[in-house]
Design a protein around this nucleic acid. Structure first.
Length: 350
DNA sequence: TTTCCCTTCACGG
DNA sequence: CTAACGCCGTGAAGGGAAA
């Protein structure tokens, strides 16, 4: 008999946009889109988060802002006010922290909590979920959604299914039933490409989890590589991943997209200095050691390219990191005379 | 051979 | 014209070189 885990996944509803609604009550009932500046339809960024009213117009996260603008020019378009969201998230973290140390923060608006041992039944766990939702609403004025199940994967899918402002418990005896008719892409880690591979293998356009669960482990590994083993289990409703409270930072980076594609070396080096500077500042503040750097270019054809160099011993000094990075930038500029859309800089750590 | 280094790909929030 | 695509982070695939 295996240990019966109880895992909770909590996700804030349309987080950035909901915070903006809270700060600006006059937005209530209106279409709110947080993300890049639409610049009358000529903006370059994408939608970060939109509220449900905006979603009625077909606006979605990740969508080019210009398209969102076409769908609903009358929407309220707001820049990303990360500081405000971070402050809010910090306060929510505090509330979740009352449930003990077994919390894994996935992003500003999402966390897993391992309740195993602390509560004996899913019924009790649900009460806790309701309590947390209520406290977040009271303290921060924001709604959230909770999923509870026997593992992380199921808790996350449960949460997804209950949005917004919901709570969903999947009892272990119902786990398989709960996922069997879902599209394979509902499994975290399976995106369009992996779905297509599975679909081709099964000769089905929209394979469901129950279809995929019939594929032998060996075949999945042949099809998907190392991850096949993991997916094989997930298709059976099994996920051994633990809730990890502290994770090491492995890289830190920044990117910049130009307003207009450019080849102006002045502009490029100026931005590059800034990127390196902010990144190395952060690295230094956290006392991390730079093991390598990556310079990223996106040309007008939209393809991303990278050049990297390793420092086996590790570098501690900001200036030195910069000095070692510039040649990578120059190589890009020399090899190529395409216009540049984006440049980026990333440090590999540890 | 094993380990690393480099680049790209896929994914997710 | 033709539609248009950010920013961050992780892990893995394959290629090749080094030890």
């Amino acid at each position: 008999m295996k240990l019966q885990k109880i895992i909770m996944h909590l996700d804030m509803d349309y987080f950035f946009a909901q915070v903006e609604e809270r700060e600006n009550p006059e937005f209530k009932g209106k279409s709110v889109v947080v993300g890049a500046n639409p610049r009358n339809g000529k903006g370059r960024g994408v939608v970060s988060t939109s509220n449900y009213k905006a979603r009625e117009y077909g606006i979605r996260s990740g969508m080019p802002i210009s398209r969102a603008y076409k769908l609903n020019p009358g929407a309220i378009f707001l820049p990303v006010n990360m500081r405000l969201y971070e402050k809010t998230a910090e306060s929510i973290s505090q509330i979740l922290g009352e449930e003990g140390p077994k919390i894994e923060k996935i992003s500003l608006d999402e966390a897993y909590i391992d309740l195993t041992g602390k509560y004996k039944t899913f019924k009790e766990a649900k009460k806790i979920g309701e309590k947390l939702k209520k406290e977040i609403l009271k303290k921060e004025g924001l709604t959230s959604t909770v999923g509870i199940a026997e593992n992380k994967m199921l808790a996350k899918i449960a949460c997804e299914s209950a949005k917004p402002n919901g709570i969903k418990v999947v009892l272990p005896k119902n786990s398989l039933n709960f996922i069997s008719d879902l599209d394979v892409q509902k499994i975290p880690g399976i995106g369009p490409k992996t779905k297509e591979k599975i679909g081709k293998y099964l000769s089905k356009e929209n394979p469901k989890i129950k279809d995929a669960s019939k594929i032998k482990k060996k075949e999945l590994v042949l099809l998907l590589g190392k991850r096949g083993e993991d997916f094989f289990k997930k298709f059976q409703g099994v996920d051994d991943a633990r809730v990890l409270s502290k994770r090491k930072i492995k890289s830190v980076g920044r990117e910049h997209t130009f307003q207009k594609d450019t080849r102006d070396p002045e502009k490029i080096t100026k931005i590059f200095r800034n990127l390196v500077n902010t990144v190395t500042d952060k690295v230094q503040r956290k006392n991390l050691i730079v093991k390598g750097v990556v310079v990223i270019f996106r040309f007008e054809d939209f393809k991303k390219h990278t050049k990297q160099i390793a420092f086996p011993g590790g570098i501690y000094d900001k200036k030195f990191v910069y000095k070692k990075s510039v040649p990578l930038l120059l190589r890009f500029l020399m090899e190529n005379n395409k216009k540049i859309r984006l440049i980026g800089f990333r440090t590999i750590l540890k």
